[in-house]
């Protein structure tokens, strides 16, 4: 009789330990603080990496044997496109979590990811146009890769607009989560578009298996920039989430305490 109660309590305790991390993740003040302490070191590291990578790619690498100097756009074009795609997964998975578990912080993360993804997709399209003109001879072509990237931009902007369109923010979160989940089919299409169809856009240069089609002297600054853009996405996501948390929790005790501390110095 007593041992049964003990076992039940132990089970309850393990359960509590397992879920305590998730509960912390769901706690706005904890998330606000931890995001702040991550940003304190990640933000300067990100800005340094972006500057070093950009100067390296712009001024210190050799030009390409065929394209000359126009290929230097690769150091912003490829990283922004790669992270725009990865960011979509962050948004869609956060949307799924908020749909299934009704976790408010997942909703905050989904809403925070959308404008950053839109900005990165825009950078990829804009720099692509500037790269296409001197190499292909056109700013824009309705090619499978380029068109599917444009759809990605509309999906991100759609999530931003849909969220604003609802007065009831809970319903807004659910609608946006569904839109981002449905839009997820676009991501493998973007990845595979250059292999499935005849397109003007060339296939990927960086390969996960086998030798990359880009010389190592050009690959290292590119990898640095890809890492820097991932860090940039993380920074912006955390900053957006912190602002959103302050707004949503403006009437709670922890935000009031925060305001008083902020006013003190």
């Amino acid at each position: 009789m007593f041992s049964r109660i003990g076992a039940a309590q132990k089970g309850l305790y393990n359960h509590a330990v397992m879920w305590s991390f998730f509960h912390k993740l769901g706690s706005p003040p904890w998330l606000y603080d931890i995001a702040g302490s991550i940003l304190r070191w990640l933000l300067p590291v990100t800005i340094m990496a972006l500057l070093v990578g950009a100067v390296w790619g712009l001024l210190f690498t050799s030009p390409d044997f065929r394209q000359g100097n126009s290929y230097r756009i690769i150091y912003i074009h490829v990283p922004s496109a790669v992270v725009a795609l990865a960011g979509y997964y962050v948004m869609a998975i956060a949307g799924a979590v908020s749909l299934i578990w009704r976790m408010k912080m997942a909703d905050v993360a989904m809403k925070a990811a959308a404008p950053i993804g839109a900005a990165l997709t825009f950078i990829a399209l804009f720099t692509g146009a500037l790269w296409g003109k001197p190499t292909w001879g056109t700013w824009w072509e309705w090619d499978a890769r380029i068109t599917s990237m444009l759809i990605l931009l509309f999906l991100y902007l759609g999530v931003v607009a849909l969220y604003e369109a609802f007065d009831n923010k809970e319903a807004a979160g659910r609608a946006c989560a569904i839109l981002s989940l449905v839009g997820m089919v676009n991501i493998p299409i973007i990845y595979k578009s250059v292999d499935w169809w005849y397109s003007l856009h060339q296939p990927a240069s960086i390969k996960f298996s086998g030798e990359s089609a880009i010389d190592s002297s050009m690959l290292y600054p590119l990898l640095l920039m890809i890492g820097a853009f991932y860090a940039l996405f993380t920074c912006c996501l955390l900053m957006n989430m912190r602002a959103e948390l302050v707004q949503r929790e403006s009437r709670t005790a922890w935000v009031r305490k925060l305001v008083k501390q902020d006013g003190a110095h």
């Binding site: 060339q202 296939p203 030798e211």
Partner: peptide, 28 residues
């Protein structure tokens, strides 16, 4: 309208020259 299509290989001119001389392309 004529558009140029380029491949996914990027390398410095010296590397391209060396490959040309050795008679091998980028993929070996």
């Amino acid at each position: 309208e004529v558009l140029a299509k380029h491949d996914e290989n990027y390398m410095p001119p010296e590397v391209a020259e060396a490959l040309e001389k050795s008679g091998y392309d980028k993929k070996g």
